[in-house]
Design a protein around this nucleic acid. Structure first.
Lengths: 218, 218
DNA sequence: GCCTTTTCGGCATGCTGTGACAAATATAGG
DNA sequence: CCTATATTTGTCACAGCATGCCGAAAAGGC
């Protein structure tokens, strides 16, 4: 972290990953992903296209800047899970703890999710990030059951957990009539129950939370 | 299907999707995905690069020609599932029924899986195909529980089922010491059990099947 | 003022993917 | 045989993405 040292040595940066991220998010939403060129994003930030690729390795990568934080949050939540807590309960608690968003961040989160759900190329770019997410789960499960993280059981748990969460994310993004936490909790409980009994759709009888803010359970 | 009418009207095709698929699979394996240009694939098939894009819409799409068949197989297997069969049992049976490969096809299947597991760009291109696979499950689950396919529960089941199968695919491709069916069955049973009890790694005590052929349960 | 460090811009380049249009090659029919 | 029609192919042009290379710009340290 060089955050605490604003007095560096050389030429100062012309922009930041965050600024490029916001500009790209706005342009993608306004005029579409394919219709937005990197030249436009760079020009809006006041830099050249060559500089854009010094901040991100690909066009779609500009949207995944925030995602890594969530993976780290899950990792640390799992590391401090008590040993007597059942496996899938620990996973569910960790995921929920890592998905507490402040209400002010929700609109941006929704814009990002809409793009992921809408543009196939962006959805494709997600696979690499998802691997890291799944691996955080798999490594925890591997430690618990005494198997390598890439053995069948830990691997399957990691993949399936993310799968359930993605279903919750997308359903929440499409409806936005309840907290994100409610959807995540429901999907993960259904998963832990082996999908043996059908789940009633959340938000049907629940109280409506304004604009789908996801500030966690009250 | 114009398969039964070899006497069409205009200029005959210079190649076929199948031929391009095999050439691409060989070149990708021999010299890598990024190191192989579309010009090379097209030249090996005796056509121009422009023609390649008349057969496939993208470079990575050339590997997913076979995949659609599996989706259709799952669909039909689910359509004929008896109503009294428990939900996840029906899903598991359908997936297993759709994954009976002839021993002669296994090497090609393994080459493809290795590429998917190795090259990020190919893995990314899978997302669109996976959506169709998941949807086949979600629509069946939706019919069963009386919800739309994109409701939370059917959606989560579809996603999670594919996730478990992908873990089984990859673990099988990495080890190849047992039938693919064994891995799929184990992963899907663990999923249906809510991952409540850790699964012993398949193939450890099982008899070895020659070259990991996947001809189904004997 | 000069040196070092860091970032930026410009240029050239290769590959992917698409649109437009003419040429090639088959059948159908007079 | 010759013409009309249908279908596929090849060529060309072009935009965009992504990368390597190199010199220039802009800061601090001495």
């Amino acid at each position: 972290m060089t955050r605490t040292r604003p007095a560096r040595r050389g030429r100062p940066r012309g922009t930041s990953t965050r600024e490029l991220e916001l500009i790209a998010l706005r342009l993608f939403t306004e005029q579409g992903f394919h219709e937005t060129t990197i030249e436009q994003i760079a020009a809006a930030a006041g830099v050249s296209t060559r500089t854009f690729f010094r901040y991100f390795d690909a066009k779609a990568s500009v949207l995944w800047h925030t995602f890594d934080n969530e993976v780290e949050a899950i990792r640390s939540a799992l590391a401090s899970a008590p040993d007597d807590l059942p496996l899938m309960d620990a996973v569910r608690h960790a995921v929920l703890a890592a998905n507490h968003y402040r209400a002010a961040d929700v609109p941006e989160l929704r814009m990002r999710m809409n793009l992921v759900a809408t543009v196939p190329e962006i959805a494709a770019s997600a696979t690499v990030r998802y691997d890291a997410w799944e691996r955080a789960i798999s490594e925890f499960v591997g430690r618990r059951v005494g198997q390598p993280p890439d053995a069948l059981f830990p691997h399957a748990v990691g993949r399936a957990t993310l799968a359930a969460c993605r279903a919750a994310y997308e359903r929440w993004a499409a409806r936005a009539d309840a907290d994100l936490s409610v959807y995540l909790d429901a999907a993960l409980r259904a998963l832990a129950g082996g999908f043996s009994e059908p789940l009633p759709e959340p938000g049907a009888g629940a109280e409506r939370t304004a604009n789908g803010s996801a500030t966690g359970t009250p």
